[in-house]
Design a protein around this nucleic acid. Structure first.
Lengths: 245, 245
DNA sequence: CAGTATCCGATGCGATACTG
DNA sequence: CAGTATCGCATCGGATACTG
């Protein structure tokens, strides 16, 4: 490629898409916008990225001037942060996420939900409200998750919320049983929490008061308020359009 | 790849970037948003895309439900149009273009401007204002364009504006002489037209009245009103960051 | 003009193995 | 924990040649 850019244009859209439209790049930026700063934190929100590629993407973003990196001193974690230009990408990320939420058919994505990513995502937007006990523990039980990943604990302590894959040993205040599909649909605003509870697709047991407050502490994805367009107008991802014959 | 999407996520941003973040895809959509409907029209705004790839991208967008295509009956041109979901991508394209205009260092892109693309782009936003004569012809002369591409004609007739690469034979009303870099910078809002005229980096000769109205009929890129951030905050494209040592 | 099929080199990226 | 170097396959995409 002899040209000055992959697209050979001075057009700002072409230059931007040269930088941004690579596999994983926008998702890495989303993680940074959501406040992750360490290598492993970022990777945790990107379940399928290989570590070498994450490393490369972060380096590219650094050399572009979208991310800065203080290397961690001796074993401790370095920190990645967005520059001003990186922060400004929030408008791009938001526009694309909103478009996806409005227009993309979600059905295929529900077939194989990664439970670790789902829980990590839920943790992002959980609300440690004052009405909860000083330490409040919820156990999630996904009946259809792979062995060893059925149970997850969310531990609210003050303003901190910890996510565990192994029993932290605390007394359980609330126990939530459901399947991955239902939890994902409710979380994303594609299904109604009240309906799911009524129809017992989600079972909540334990202390009565926090159960009554579930809508507050559970929160929902930031995109849940954007509603989907009617099915006939929706977009399919290529793989879906081709496969499944 | 076994997963339901390249990113294995129900996240709308991941699904959207799976569809949109491929080489050329957003630029094809930009062309459609700008009103191009035929294969060659679209290709004209994408100087470096290969025809087979353009064909494939259009087919992908069609099967996703972002574009519709009526095949042309017998030798006549078919037509591509955006669906409702495709139209809605305007917010994404705009956000990314604005970000690029604000934050990306434009310097490298000026080194090798494709004059055909520049003229095609200028034609997009030219204004056939009423004060011009019924037929108004401007000849552009780029001193540094490759042989055979130095001269371009813009012919305003009523509300139509035609772009020619060969002499249409009409009498020239206005003659504009400059270099590619200056024209691009002015067009994109990176340089001031008045300054360029004053410093004679752009020479305008011919009929006095239209010359006085140049700011109106020439127009500027839609992005010209967005101003760049200070150089120290700007972003470089990877290739630029690496090369040029 | 409006595309499409095929070929094949370039690159992208995941796996693996490694360091501090 | 926080990364990086290398290798090799798989996919991408440009060139070319072709059809209606």
């Amino acid at each position: 490629m002899v040209s000055v850019s992959a697209y050979g244009q001075y057009c700002p859209l072409a230059m931007a898409s040269d930088i941004l439209c690579n596999r994983w790049t926008l998702l890495v930026i989303r993680e940074l916008l959501d406040g992750s700063t360490s290598f492993n934190e970022i990777g945790r929100g990107l379940p399928l990225i290989s570590r070498s590629l994450l490393s490369r993407r972060l380096r590219e973003l650094d050399s572009s001037g979208i991310v800065t990196h203080q290397p961690g001193a001796r074993g401790s974690s370095g920190a990645y942060h967005l520059t001003a230009a990186g922060q400004a990408l929030e408008s791009v990320v938001r526009a694309m996420a909103i478009w996806g939420q409005e227009w993309i058919d979600e059905e295929p994505s529900l077939e194989d939900v990664d439970v670790r990513f789902l829980m990590w995502d839920i943790r992002r937007n959980v609300k440690p409200i004052a009405e909860l006990p000083p330490r409040f523990t919820v156990r999630f039980d996904f009946e259809d998750a792979p062995d060893g990943l059925r149970e997850h604990w969310l531990v609210f302590e003050g303003t901190e919320v910890d996510l565990c894959y192994v029993d932290p040993g605390h007394e359980i205040d609330v126990h939530l049983e459901t399947d991955l599909r239902t939890m994902t649909r409710v979380w994303m605003g594609w299904d109604d929490l009240d309906a799911a509870l009524r129809e017992e697709r989600i079972l909540l047991t334990g202390a009565r008061k926090p159960i009554g407050l579930v809508r507050q502490w559970l929160g929902l994805s930031k995109l849940a308020e954007i509603s989907k367009r009617p099915p006939k107008d929706r977009v399919l991802r290529p793989r879906d359009a081709v496969g499944n014959v």
